[in-house]
């Protein structure tokens, strides 16, 4: 099986749903991504920082949801093992049944 450290847990990727980038928090006045407008180069206003500190904290952004793929049960190698094991159990049951019949026949 190929080495894949992300088989059980895929690494979390950054998306816009994560909320403002730290650099936007730092500089303020975040322009919309991709609008091509040059943003104001005024520095972070200290009074604005103080206002932000005084205001109640904004609700946290919705957590980024990563749908986990349950590779443990659905991997092709696991499936092969399960099928193989089932066949083995059936074969053992059939053989023991056959042996029991033979012994019964011999006893008769």
């Amino acid at each position: 099986m190929a080495y894949d450290p992300q088989r059980k847990h895929e690494r979390r990727r950054v998306t816009e749903e994560d909320g403002p980038a730290p650099v936007d928090e730092l500089l303020g006045e975040s322009p919309a991504a991709g609008n091509g407008e040059r943003a104001s180069t005024t520095p972070t206003d200290p009074s604005a920082s103080a206002e932000r500190a005084a205001s109640p904290p904004e609700p946290a952004a919705e957590p980024f949801f990563v749908e986990e793929t349950v590779e443990f049960d659905s991997g092709p190698d696991r499936r092969l093992l399960v099928v193989g094991f089932t066949l083995l159990v059936i074969a053992i049951l059939l053989l023991s049944r056959r042996r029991r019949r033979r012994r019964a026949d011999e006893a008769a």
Partner: peptide, 17 residues
């Protein structure tokens, strides 16, 4: 890398690409 690429992208937007 994910984080810093986002930062670079945001700075690039601020600088008009």
């Amino acid at each position: 890398v994910e984080q810093i690429l986002r930062t670079v992208e945001r700075v690039s937007v601020r600088r008009g690409g």
